[in-house]
Design a protein around this nucleic acid. Structure first.
Lengths: 142, 142
DNA sequence: ATACATCCTCTAGCTACTGTAGCTTCAAGA
DNA sequence: TCTTGAAGCTACAGTAGCTAGAGGATGTAT
């Protein structure tokens, strides 16, 4: 039997985050002591670890919910999980592309700044004049 | 004189977003018609373009506030703007590193999935067992 | 005069937590 | 058994940066 603090430490999660997961139905309601404190077993610990690891890989909570469902019903076909992972991979790759473009523009800005005062600042100038911008940024989701 | 819809279209911003910027003090309160509708001039249009371009480069609103201050006082030294840009560049590079690690783990997961049912699913297995994870992910900020 | 697009304010919602206040319970040591 | 301090409890507010919707007013073209 573990307290919430114990599974928090073991999985590197904040206590409040675990309670939050319970609130949104991602973690089950655990048993309680007579005094009302939560007590967890190994299954819950595993589930939380699964959630945390998925989060670290950037999966949104909704995707994690699906993955947990799949994990709970072992006879369902695997391709659903596979597809969720592929979707996530694609998202990560898109973000990387986007960051690459940002990086090059930022690098250019910083490089050209020769240090004077704000009136001649190349950084500010670039920000002011969008036409100098080489890349297209449609969506902002960095 | 432009309506809010016009500067929205010109800068690729949603109307609500402009009102939000006004609310948090990033955009000034513009003049109004007798009926109470906002009317903007060129200065405001430029300011909004500056904000949007900065956002597209990933600068947080606080940083943009500083950049706008600098831009408004041309005799202040430039290195402050330079430093903000450098900070942003560093952040972008950190995020890229992180995404690279995620990508490789996701790729591995997806590659090893041979398609069967959830019980043998490699994706779920990897998520379940954190010890298979090669990279360390301390903070999640993807 | 009327139709219709656009504008207004206000409120609530989104993701994924995180922090605080004010109080209670648990477990170990004396 | 009593005390003490850490850790637990609920409930609510706040974070970033918007976005959506209700319900009504205004502006402009015909």
């Amino acid at each position: 039997m573990f307290t919430i603090g114990m599974i928090a430490k073991r999985t590197g999660t904040k206590v409040q985050t675990i309670r939050y997961y319970e609130q949104i139905g991602l973690m089950p309601e655990p048993g309680r002591t007579e005094g009302g404190q939560r007590r967890y077993g190994d299954a819950e610990l595993d589930r939380l670890a699964f959630i945390r690891h998925s989060r670290q890989l950037g999966f949104p909570l909704d995707a994690i919910r699906e993955l947990l469902d799949l994990s709970d019903t072992p006879d369902r076909p695997c391709h659903e999980a596979d597809e969720i992972a592929r979707r996530q991979l694609k998202l990560v790759e898109q973000r990387m592309e986007r960051l690459k473009a940002l990086r090059s523009e930022l690098k250019r800005m910083v490089k050209e700044c020769s240090g004077g005062n704000a009136a001649q600042c190349r950084v500010l100038e670039v920000l002011r004049d969008h036409s100098e911008c080489l890349t297209d940024h449609d969506n902002i989701g960095v």
